[in-house]
Amino acid sequence: MSVTSKKGLDYWLPKLVLSPTVAIAIIFIYGFIIWTSVISLTDSTILPRYDFVGFEQYVKLFQNPRWLSSLWNLVVFGTLFIGVCMVVGLVLAILLDQQIRAEGALRTVYLYPMALSFIVTGTVWKWLLNPTVGIERFIHNLGWESFQFDWIVNPDMAIYTVVIAGVWQSSGFVMAIFLAGLRGIDTSIIKAAQLDGASLFSVYSRIIIPSMRPVFFSAFIMLAHLAIKSFDLIVALTGGGPGNATDVPAIFMYQFSFQRGRLGIGAASAVIMLMTILAILIPYLYSELRKPKDA
């Protein structure tokens, strides 16, 4: 093809520059999602095989008690993680918004865990929460002998330790989003309300917080996304244990696909994870894209 004229080159160049990314999107994102979905419909074990068995792997998946308990753990972890992060983040943002002297320094402190790898967070909290060396031992040595904080080795409570470490890592981030939201609010409305004698509490609860609905929405999306993908934190903190007490879908998927050689069921679990994220995301993107352009 002869693309010699200046106009021709100008026409093709932008498309040419974009083409590697188009290839990436087609192969690595859409192609691979389809591929994973296809594998989930086959009886693949250690290697992918293309003998289709319909939805058998999904049936097996939802008959598997480990999968069901990992889903339940995700519900418990996700709800608490999102809820506590939102509350802590909002409260911190409001407190920091009261013309605090050292706001910059405090913000830096609240947010630094976000720069850490979940593996580092998990490693530190593992020792802190370990009853024989960590907080429990420390309190015992202070003289309170009956103090008990052994959640991390207690199968009924271990999932809550994941919440503790997760909130430590991510709540500062939520604070940053909310603080940005608070700063974006038109202050004249607030001043008018205060002149009318509204208390600080009702200014926040009636005016400010309701007007931050979009910010709540994006914080929720980010946190839900983090929760559904959470893998590293749990690997480093509890390894999924004690027993399978802190198993989540991401760990289930990893173990069945790469350690137990059951690709079919692993792929099915990955598809369910993707569907869950899309179910949360699509309404969000839809509402975002419908907004006027410079909103």
Partner: peptide, 8 residues
Amino acid sequence: PFQAILLP
């Protein structure tokens, strides 16, 4: 979620 692309 990266789990959905790990196998391919």
